[in-house]
Design a protein around this nucleic acid. Structure first.
Lengths: 236, 236
DNA sequence: GCTCGTTTTTGAGCTATCGCAAACACCCTG
DNA sequence: CAGGGTGTTTGCGATAGCTCAAAAACGAGC
């Protein structure tokens, strides 16, 4: 098992309040693994045997209906935890996790969680905070889906992705991992066709530059304007 | 300040793992208050000075957009906590809480939370579990909003309400607090008009019996069937 | 450099649902 | 028990976005 350098992860929210000398003890319980692009890390419904901390790459968490439709729950960026089923008392993963880029994660066995929490109560507090934040984001998403039109929702989604995983270029901000029209549709509750039409329109207006699984926001501010536009303030 | 009987709350999930003799110490930090029907318990954006445990009644948590549209985040039933902003590290309430019936709640000052958690780590673990469960429910709701039609979403919403706060009658299951078409619309991302039409239809078919802020599921199983019907398996 | 599979684009019609408007029913109050 | 306010029903037109369909663009591998 490769040794993890504590200095690389010490600053993460998960370890807030944990003394540096204790961090090593926590990390000793973890192993790390590499996931090639497009491989599954765990499947919805599978036994939640581990929980994860993403070190490199990007992971898509998606939920599937009985009838096969999918939604993207979120994209995981480096430094974030995922697969926390056990912390919330679920025996099985409620979603599927796929590496969308070559990725590396730290992996703890679910069974280690109770012991870790007992020894380092900050872990529970920190995780509570994380999960709470996600809950709020989730409510915001519900609010958007209930009250906004598709174009605005797509605008919001891209802005969020840019904030979380945007890479600054001279020409604008690029979403730093491969993402398809279909993925965006599954984040916003629409179809890939509609997303394609919207992005085509934006490209015309010089708001974005995009291609196969690639999006650059050329005019982030312009997109903010779109995102906040009231439903009827029509374009020319 | 009225003394709270520990035996009434000892079994609640929040206090799992807390020794009975300690429970009193926790309750000593709380006061209780009565909220008349339709009164606000706290407002979205206000300082999160307290967190709550509902003892009697029902509370609606709703989120408002800048432009005034609302969604219902959830209904709180007796025994559930709400207003947990502090636990997730938010200084202000992200939603408004309204008593939909005469209600009674225990109230702790936000400032007491860190001390309580330090002294009784199970509180953090239990709260994590609660928040985690809500997160999953929230994701389920997003999934439904993305993939199902309005009628199915309304069916799911009513079934959930019935499970959480249903009162068994001979004639069926009654939602045990006042709830309007508008409220249901705000839970499912539609309009009161559409909800009204749907319920009218169901009433014709004998699935429900409903009136002003009142709904009885006369044929819960029939509604389950509706809820699970695939989008196109058309009715006669 | 060509081939194959995937992703994206675009068109055209269709429909579930919205938005508006008006009438109606119910409940509480005085 | 009449009045006023809130919640509900229903009709009708408008439309955002979906569905189906097909072509085009792109990238990876041979």
């Amino acid at each position: 098992m490769a040794k993890v350098d504590t200095s690389l992860v010490a600053h993460l929210p998960l370890f807030g309040g944990v003394k540096p000398e204790d961090l090593d003890e926590i990390l000793r319980e973890a192993r790390s693994a590499r996931y090639p692009k497009n491989s599954a890390i765990f499947e919805q419904g599978a036994d939640a045997q581990s929980f994860f901390l993403l070190l490199h790459g990007h992971v898509r968490a998606a939920k599937t209906t009985p009838t096969g439709e999918q939604i993207v729950v979120r994209y995981v960026a480096p430094g974030e935890t995922f697969g926390l089923a056990m912390a919330i008392g679920a025996a099985r993963y409620p979603a599927t996790a796929i590496a969308v880029d070559d990725s590396v994660a730290l992996i703890w066995p679910t069974s280690a969680w109770p012991r870790l929490v007992e020894r380092f109560p900050s872990l529970a507090a920190n995780t509570l905070q994380t999960v709470g934040t996600r809950l709020q984001e989730s409510h915001t998403r519900i609010l958007e889906m209930s009250t906004q039109q598709v174009e605005q929702r797509v605008a919001h989604a891209l802005l969020r992705l840019a904030k979380q995983s945007g890479k600054k270029l001279d020409r604008g901000i690029e979403i730093d991992f491969p993402i398809s029209r279909q993925d965006i549709a599954q984040m916003t509750g629409t179809t890939l066709h509609t997303v394609s039409r919207i992005l085509s329109g934006w490209e015309q207006q010089g708001l974005v530059e995009s291609g196969r699984q690639r999006i650059i926001l050329r005019d982030p501010h312009g997109i903010v304007v779109l995102a906040e536009r009231s439903p009827d303030s029509g374009a020319a």
